[in-house]
């Protein structure tokens, strides 16, 4: 009986036709989906920036990410190869993996001699070779070394920051860098507070007036940061100094007063509560004492 039914189905042409159609329906779209996943690597993007820190350390930062509409996603743990281009050759500096924010940072100590070049201008490269999922990408910045320094001057209670910027000539001597946009900041807890923007003159000099009413820490210390930002020629260059020009702010935490909102209650309140409670409970115990006498008299009679 069972065999008959199976035979009936197995050798029915309609059955095979349906099977074939189902096969086509289910297999074809699934395959094409898979294909798109495997064969189309995602376009990766890179930003390469150059920062010269206050101690002369140069930092190359490569940010590796993908963009989908408005959403940026960092590419993590991807090796980025940094190199510097000379007039004649290219020198590889190192390979750094990106962190969880997609950043690969290369620190170049101030003692590290980059290959000699005219006017100390360099072309830095960062390269990500990609893999099955990401398309290779590279970044490039052209940087001329800038020397930024500043002095603090106080004249007639007017405080100014005198800034000098220099660059190297083709003969490797220092010459003034003019028309450089320079920002003055004071470091704050969350961000930098701008105190002025100036352009350097022909002598590579400029000055920023320091506000007289800026609070510092408990002894008036402040951190001043002078910066060249996003310059096409110099990249980012900064110089940081601690100064004592701020108005001291008293950090002394005065003992919190006795208050309704404080841990300790106002004295009158404690006294009032104690007096009222003592009065009430005194009477209570007086009444209990009378009762004790009643009981005592009852025992005597027995």
């Amino acid at each position: 009986m069972k065999i008959q039914i199976i035979n009936k189905y197995l050798f029915n042409k309609v059955y095979y036709k349906i099977l074939f159609i189902l096969f086509v329906i289910y297999s074809v779209p699934a395959r094409s989906e898979d294909n798109s996943k495997i064969n189309k690597p995602i376009k990766s993007r890179m930003y390469l920036t150059y920062d010269k820190l206050t101690d002369g350390t140069k930092v190359l930062t490569a940010k590796l990410f993908t963009k989908d509409g408005k959403i940026f996603t960092p590419i993590v743990n991807a090796p980025v190869c940094f190199s510097v281009e000379n007039d004649t050759s290219t020198l590889e500096l190192g390979i750094i993996s990106t962190d969880k924010e997609g950043l690969a940072l290369l620190y170049l100590s101030k003692h590290y001699q980059l290959p000699g070049n005219l006017g100390r201008a360099y072309i830095f490269h960062a390269e990500y070779s990609g893999n099955d999922e990401y398309i290779p990408v590279d970044g490039q910045v052209e940087i001329k070394d800038l020397l930024l320094d500043f002095k603090l001057a106080e004249k007639d209670s007017e405080k100014t920051i005198e800034i000098t910027v220099n660059e190297y000539s083709s003969e490797d001597t220092l010459v003034p860098a003019y028309d450089v946009e320079i920002y003055g900041y004071v470091k704050r807890l969350y961000s930098l507070l701008e105190i002025g923007v100036e352009y350097s003159d022909d002598l590579g000099m400029t000055s920023i007036e320091f506000p007289g009413d800026l609070p510092g820490d408990s002894i008036g210390n402040l951190t001043v940061i002078i910066k060249v930002e996003d310059s096409d020629i110099y990249g980012n260059v900064e110089k940081i100094k601690d100064i004592n020009w701020g108005i001291p702010v008293s950090y002394k935490e005065t003992k919190t007063p006795r208050a309704l909102w404080a841990d300790e209650a106002p004295l009158w309140m404690i006294i009032a509560v104690i007096v009222i409670l003592a009065g009430a409970w005194f009477n209570f115990f007086l009444a209990i004492f009378k009762l004790y006498k009643v009981r005592k008299l009852g025992k005597i009679r027995k």
């Binding site: 500096l93 190192g94 750094i96 940072l105 590290y112």
Partner: peptide, 16 residues
């Protein structure tokens, strides 16, 4: 910000 890979340029800076 720094991620250490133990190779490449970091070692060249190590002396300083």
């Amino acid at each position: 910000a720094l991620t250490v890979t133990g190779s490449g340029i970091v070692s060249s800076l190590a002396k300083e």
